[in-house]
Design a protein around this nucleic acid. Structure first.
Lengths: 177, 177
DNA sequence: ACCTGAACACCGTTCAAGT
DNA sequence: ACCTGAACACCGTTCAAGT
């Protein structure tokens, strides 16, 4: 029996757990979803999850990684008219995972793994925004401040539900420097 | 025995619990502080706390109320040079309670009381920022967007530790519209 | 290698009993 | 009115035992 087959089985089983965990986390939230619930949703015994993941936080990190790599691919395929539209798309996509944004903030100080993920996420988002702003030829230190403000606004829009019109206006205001 | 004496006793006991809970929440975080720990810090049995508070979330709301009314009084007594300085002071003061900011966001969807508190807090903060911006005579809808961006930036600065210099620059950039 | 039943230490909360 | 000991249902996690 080739080692590949084994690893493929293991990975596909892992992916199944991640997929059903994603659904539970987005629907009910991380804190409100117990390991038992997670297990029954995946059709295994509660402690079986620990064969595939170190702990509950590692399940969350796996869900986040899967979710955001999917979004990243979609982002690159999207045709955008301007900066404001680009911003709005990001916010609208991430909004589906808004519950998880709060969870990540709350757990970053408790779980090193989630803290690491959170920092990586910020670097990525800031890099994206920085690229966008680079085209406007502003003084360097002003750019860095604006990058932070943009990222904080994205996070804010995620954490606080808002009408499409409000979101649109805020993104436009921000894009206009 | 006058009713006043009784109520005073009750209130002062309640205040003691709030004071020691404040310390535990800021030091160790809300999630990491158990009701048992809260009780032993206040020198009572775990379930005694339920005589003074409906549940753990109500203790948090009480701590938040006490904390922010204290800050509000200090704010009004402060002599500020300009908008940027004003912003920076708010951020620096609230930073002491940054762990609680994350907790509030995470629990707002789980606890109606905390959700209510969170909304009140946003109205208050937005009102403050709106007053500040009103002096600049901008179009109304632009003001509303800027208010949101300012509040989101305040929240962002609280959630993500930063050097004083970075904070100062971000506040200045924002104050310069 | 993979999965499980049973147990562990802990959690927030309730309740009947004491003063 | 105020406080408690004991119990409840649940949590995330571990471990020895099975295949």
């Amino acid at each position: 029996m080739p080692r590949n087959k084994r690893e493929q089985d293991r990975d596909s089983k892992r992916d199944e757990i991640i997929a059903s965990a994603r659904e539970r986390f987005l629907e009910d939230g991380f804190e409100a979803t117990s390991m038992s619930r997670l297990a029954s949703a995946a059709g295994v015994a509660p402690n079986t999850i620990y064969w595939y993941f170190k702990d509950k936080d590692e399940v969350l990190v796996a869900v986040l990684d899967a979710e955001f790599s999917t979004r990243a691919v979609e982002y690159l395929q999207q045709p955008f008219a301007d900066t404001a539209e680009r911003l709005l798309w990001v916010v609208n996509q991430l909004e589906l995972t808004s519950r998880l944004v709060s969870t990540v903030h709350a757990r970053a100080s408790l779980s090193p793994q989630i803290n690491t993920w959170h920092e990586r996420f910020h670097e990525l988002t800031e890099g994206m925004v920085r690229m966008e702003l680079a085209q406007k030829s502003l003084p360097a230190e002003r750019i860095e401040s604006l990058v932070k403000i943009c990222v904080f606004t994205i996070e804010g829009l995620l954490a606080h539900p808002m009408t499409d019109e409000e979101k649109r206006r805020i993104c436009a205001t921000l894009a206009a420097v």
